[in-house]
Design a protein around this nucleic acid. Structure first.
Lengths: 199, 199
DNA sequence: TAGCAAGTTGACCACCCGGTCCGCTTATTG
DNA sequence: CAATAAGCGGACCGGGTGGTCAACTTGCTA
């Protein structure tokens, strides 16, 4: 099932170099950073990159998959937290912090093709749904808000701050706080549209 | 100052066709829609496009400028509204509705070069600041929120819904409502980060 | 340490992009 | 209706892209 042969020592190191370089490059220049630049940044040839990742999308998928799994694992862990309200906030905080530099649009855009990413993402989404359900039952989140809502709003803080030039690295916390206040039951006004079924 | 000669009849029509086609194309495929596609959609040659708009950015700027001016005018109008709270909400509603299809990232990204766009945008931003100040004085918006915050959050509803495939066209209203609830004074929790100076 | 498979490399390819240019068409106007 | 300038279009250009490949290097193993 898995790889019959382990990776050669230098190849394993180069793979790590490529992933790191790609993560940096995508963070700085968005998802249309060129593979040539990524390879150069890793100090390797372009051919080497394509030996490890058959396609640019595969490279992206490898990065994204790591992030999603990480986030999913954290979510699972937080399902056992004593206080579901702060647990949800903690989850959203880590999610935003993890992507600090750049919006995680690629989370959706790259996922269209790669089956692994889609699977991991849906698993993670299910966890978010559970986190939100628990928080709602605890009265920490308004009754008319669903997991799908939170999933969609999850990326907003980073997106919003990506527009201020030379933004302080923690500015997203401000907007996460505002949005989270909007999710609380205190002083909530009725919502004008039903939630989406999708995520 | 302005054009010494009026546009020829067919040229004026073609200009309109190009603007409409470009707006559609950008809405559907994002800002890296190709000029060739835009021209084809308008039923015209690529050369014609470049005769009307020296550069792809100029074309984008022309579209964006219209939208910004429209929004700015509405804002000015709403400054005289009797109730500043609903006036701000109305402004944000129209802003989001106007861009319904696609996030208005280009509002920022395209603005980097074109001086006209920058000027119009800053004027519009000043109006938003006034709207927010009035709403805050009226107790319709929490004390620790600034115009800059609202400007940044303005695009979030569209951005957020752009990720749900086949989203109902009014879904953004739901997220505008949630975010606006986060801006209200009722049940507001202190914000963990100072507002940005920029916009 | 010898041999070989695994890994590396950068020149190279086809393709697509924004933008140019010049021969052609056509609205305008006297 | 001519004459003319404004407008049109698509072949073309240079540059940058993702991806390939055959010659070369190197880590592993017997």
């Amino acid at each position: 099932m898995t790889s019959p042969r382990p990776l050669r020592a230098d190849a394993a190191r180069n793979r790590r170099l490529l992933l790191a370089a790609a993560a940096d490059e995508f963070a700085e220049r968005g998802l249309d950073a060129s593979v040539a630049d990524i390879a150069r940044r890793a100090g390797l040839g372009k051919g080497t990159l394509f030996r490890h990742f058959a396609t640019k999308d595969d490279l992206l998928a490898a990065i994204v998959l790591d992030r999603i799994d990480e986030l999913g694992a954290l979510g699972e862990q937080l399902l056992d937290a004593a206080d579901p309200g702060p647990a949800l906030l903690e989850f959203l905080t880590v999610a935003a912090d993890q992507q600090q530099q750049r919006d995680l649009s690629f989370l959706q855009e790259a996922g269209e093709l790669n089956a692994d990413v889609i699977r991991a993402r849906e698993q993670m989404f299910r966890t978010v749904h559970k986190l939100v359900d628990r928080a709602r039952e605890h009265g920490a989140v308004r009754a008319d808000v669903t997991g799908a809502d939170v999933i969609l709003l999850m990326c907003a803080p980073n997106y919003v701050t990506s527009y201020v030039s030379d933004a302080p690295p923690d500015l997203w916390r401000r907007y996460l706080a505002i949005i989270f206040d909007g999710l609380r039951p205190d002083g909530a006004h009725p919502l004008p549209h039903p939630p989406p079924a999708a995520p």
